[in-house]
Structures are given as structure tokens and as C-alpha cells.
Amino acid sequence: MATADDFKLIRDIHSTGGRRQVFGSREQKPFEDLVDLGWLKRSSVDSRATHYQITERGTSAAL
């Protein structure tokens, strides 16, 4: 179930172009929650960072 923080984060991601790069596993937790909701997808993972991209469902949630 989505929380107020989830909606705040997806709106922030949407307003800044729909993509986010995250460093460190602790910082990934809120983004992984949005992946579980179907609002974000992991577009790539490298040794230092994970890249996320907003989905259509995420765009709808952000509006």
C-alpha cells in the first residue's frame, strides 16, 4: 500500500524528468518500494549506482 512519502517521492521524480540515479543500498529502499508498487522500474544497475525510470503507472500516481 502506498504511503504519503511514496506519493511525495514519485511527484519529485516526475517533476525532475522521470529518472533518478541512486548510490548506496540504504538510499535505494524508498525507490525499491516504488518498484514494488509498479511506479518505477530499474533501468540499469552498475557497481556504484542504480538507475530508476518512472513508469506510466508512476506518472498517473504523480498527477
Rank of each mutant, 00 (worst) to 15 (best):
A61R: 03
L40S: 00
K29Y: 05
G24I: 07
W39M: 02
D12T: 07
K41D: 11
V45Y: 09
G17N: 07
R11C: 12
G38I: 02
R48C: 14
L9V: 03
G24L: 09
M1P: 11
A4G: 08
E27D: 13
G17I: 03
D33G: 09
I54T: 03
D5H: 08
K29A: 09
S47P: 10
Q28Y: 06
K29E: 08
P30F: 06
G24M: 06
S25Y: 09
R19M: 12
E27P: 07
E32F: 04
G18V: 02
D33C: 13
E56W: 08
T16P: 01
L40F: 00
S43Y: 12
T55G: 01
T59I: 15
I54E: 03
L40P: 01
L34I: 02
R57H: 09
T59R: 12
R20W: 08
T50D: 04
V45K: 10
G18D: 03
E27H: 10
Q53Y: 11
R42V: 15
L37Y: 05
R19Q: 13
R26Y: 14
L9Q: 03
F23N: 12
Q21M: 13
V35Y: 03
G38C: 05
L37I: 06
D46S: 11
H14D: 03
K41M: 14
V35Q: 02
A4Y: 10
E27N: 14
T59W: 06
R19S: 14
L37R: 06
D6Y: 07
R20H: 06
V45S: 11
H14G: 03
L40M: 04
V45F: 09
D12F: 10
G18M: 02
T16D: 08
S15L: 13
K29T: 06
A2N: 04
D36V: 14
R11H: 08
G58M: 00
D36M: 13
S47L: 10
R42Q: 07
A4K: 10
L34Y: 01
D6T: 04
S43N: 10
L37A: 03
G17Y: 04
R20T: 09
D6C: 08
Q21K: 13
L34D: 00
A49M: 12
D6F: 06
S60T: 12
P30V: 07
R20N: 04
A2T: 05
V22N: 03
T50L: 06
A49Q: 09
R20I: 14
V45W: 10
D6S: 07
S25C: 12
V45T: 10
A62F: 03
V35I: 07
S47C: 11
I10W: 01
T50A: 11
R57G: 07
T50I: 14
G17M: 05
E27Q: 10
L37S: 02
R11N: 05
K8W: 11
L63E: 08
A62M: 03
D33H: 15
G38D: 04
S43R: 08
F23L: 14
S47E: 14
H14A: 10
T59E: 10
T59M: 12
D5R: 09
D6K: 07
L9T: 03
R26F: 13
S44P: 07
R11F: 10
H14N: 06
E27T: 08
Q28S: 09
S25F: 08
F7L: 10
W39I: 00
R42N: 04
A49G: 15
G38S: 03
I54N: 01
S60L: 15
S44W: 14
K41P: 01
D12P: 00
R19K: 12
L9G: 02
M1F: 12
K8H: 09
A49F: 11
T3L: 05
D46Y: 03
G24W: 06
P30T: 05
R48F: 14
R57D: 12
L34W: 00
H51E: 15
E27M: 09
G18F: 02
L9A: 03
G18C: 04
E56P: 12
R42D: 03
S60E: 15
Q53M: 11
K41A: 11
E56S: 10
L37H: 05
V35G: 01
T55H: 01
V45E: 08
R19G: 09
R19N: 11
R11A: 09
T3W: 04
D33E: 08
L9Y: 03
D12C: 14
F7T: 04
V22T: 04
A61L: 03
G58D: 01
E32V: 06
Y52A: 01
R42K: 13
H14F: 13
T50W: 07
Y52K: 01
R48Y: 14
S15H: 11
G24Q: 08
Y52M: 01
R19A: 11
S25G: 10
I54K: 01
L40K: 00
G24F: 08
S15K: 12
L63P: 01
R20A: 12
K41F: 14
W39R: 00
T55F: 00
L40H: 00
G58R: 00
L37C: 03
D33M: 13
I54Q: 02
Q21N: 08
H51I: 15
Q28T: 10
S25E: 15
E32P: 01
Q28C: 12
D33W: 12
Q21W: 15
D36Y: 11
F31H: 03
L63T: 09
S25R: 10
Q28L: 11
Q28E: 06
I13Q: 00
T50E: 04
R20G: 04
K41L: 13
G17D: 06
P30S: 07
T55I: 02
F23W: 09
H14R: 06
T3V: 05
R42F: 05
G38Q: 04
D12H: 09
A62K: 00
R26G: 14
G38Y: 03
S60F: 12
E27G: 10
I13G: 00
E27I: 06
D6R: 06
D36K: 14
D46W: 02
V35H: 03
G38A: 04
F23R: 12
R20K: 08
S43E: 15
I54L: 05
G17E: 06
D36C: 12
R48Q: 13
D12N: 08
G18I: 02
G17F: 04
T3N: 08
K29F: 04
G17A: 05
D6P: 05
T59S: 07
H51F: 13
R57C: 14
F7N: 03
H14Q: 09
V35K: 02
W39V: 00
R57K: 15
R19D: 07
A61C: 07
A62I: 04
I13P: 00
F7R: 05
M1K: 13
D36H: 13
M1A: 11
I10C: 02
S47D: 14
M1N: 11
I13D: 00
S60C: 14
A4W: 11
S43P: 04
I10K: 00
G24S: 08
A2D: 03
M1T: 12
M1C: 15
K29W: 05
